[in-house]
Simulated assay, not measured.
Amino acid sequence: MRGADNHQLLSAFLDVLRYERQLARSTITTYQRLLEAHLDELEQPLNEVDQETLQRLLNRAHQCGMKSRTLNQHRAAWRGLYGWLCERGYMATDPAEALVLPKQRDKPLLKALSPDAIANLLRPPPDDEPLDLRDHAILELFYSSGLRLAELAALDASIAGKTSAAIRGKGDKTRNIYIGQAANQALARWLKVREGWLAPERAESALFISQRGTRLTHRGIQQAIVRYGKKFLPDQPLHPHMLRHSFAGHVLQSSQNIRAVQELLGHSSLNTTQIYTHLDFQHLSQVYDQSHPRARAKIKKK
């Protein structure tokens, strides 16, 4: 019953994560998926696994094309499991503690939009067509605040009109985001037509909704960005992270303050933020002469 013993230990470990450590549901789900796959690869009981076996599995996954981020997730899951086994006395030494990630090839530079492309993309729509107003507001908010896709999808309409707000982001961590003037203007235009999509019998708190009156899904937001981009920036494929990259790159180039960018993006490690130091925009226009011009510059009307 060797396999059953392994799965019983895994089940007990997941219960610890769930009830004692109270990790986020998404984290537990990820650990469960990775560790169940790990059990399928093992040919011995968990408490007989050594570091050489784990390192060989990690190296093989790398040779099969697994990216460094996923490899790191596997290593973190293994460290959690085997560390717990050691704490409970099932093992004398932790075979995952000294695992080394296989060396990765140089990462490709992040793709980001130039300031001129951003200026063209984020010009207000010429009419009050609700779909364009919603999608324009989505793009403005992505670029204004450096949000992740899941973070934007979770926003409620109560955020409109605020210049800053506390949100719960990746890893269930709370951080402050900042909402610029241009983004708030776009949100105000969207909220004027949003009610037309709400079902009378349904109360919906979501900031961005579908034409059925329900919270816009991650897929719906991605489709909105692609649709809007084809209409207003047809030569540039768009995705949510491209706007986040653009936000980070432009703020970093203007401010030269990588620590501030780290906090704005919600990165737990400065190493993650440092990739933005490689973004080189040769045509930074005078409009972007502050840390985030769309957030700070006054819009002059005469």
Rank of each mutant, 00 (worst) to 15 (best):
H245S: 06
R2G: 08
R212K: 14
L243H: 08
T217L: 07
L149G: 04
E263T: 05
N257C: 07
T93F: 15
R60H: 04
P200V: 15
P234I: 12
L233W: 02
V226N: 08
G266Y: 10
L155P: 03
A117L: 09
A295R: 02
E195F: 04
P115H: 13
H239F: 14
L85D: 03
I225C: 02
W197V: 14
W190R: 05
R25H: 12
R69W: 11
A166V: 15
D50L: 07
E52V: 09
P95H: 10
K170E: 10
D5N: 06
L187A: 06
K231W: 09
K302W: 08
I209P: 04
L99G: 06
N59C: 02
E151Q: 05
R75A: 12
V193N: 03
Q22Y: 05
I118G: 00
L42P: 08
Q22M: 08
T163K: 14
P115F: 15
G249M: 04
Q253A: 12
A224V: 12
E41W: 15
T277V: 07
A37P: 03
R123L: 07
H62I: 00
Q282H: 13
Q274C: 10
T217I: 03
D280W: 09
E43M: 04
S68E: 13
S205D: 15
P124F: 10
A260R: 04
D50G: 05
M66T: 12
V251H: 09
T163V: 04
N257D: 15
E140I: 01
T163G: 15
L10Q: 05
T27W: 15
G266N: 04
L207H: 11
K231C: 04
G146T: 05
A188W: 04
F281H: 08
M91Y: 07
N184H: 07
H218Q: 12
Y82D: 01
A260S: 09
C86S: 05
D289Y: 03
S164V: 03
P130R: 06
A24Q: 09
G89M: 08
A96T: 00
P234Q: 07
Q44A: 11
N72F: 03
P237E: 10
Q32D: 14
T163W: 13
R244L: 10
A96Q: 08
L10G: 02
K173Q: 10
N72P: 02
L14C: 08
E195I: 05
P108T: 08
D106E: 14
A61N: 03
R215H: 01
I225V: 15
L35R: 05
A295G: 10
A117D: 12
D5V: 00
A182H: 14
I28A: 02
P125S: 08
Q236R: 12
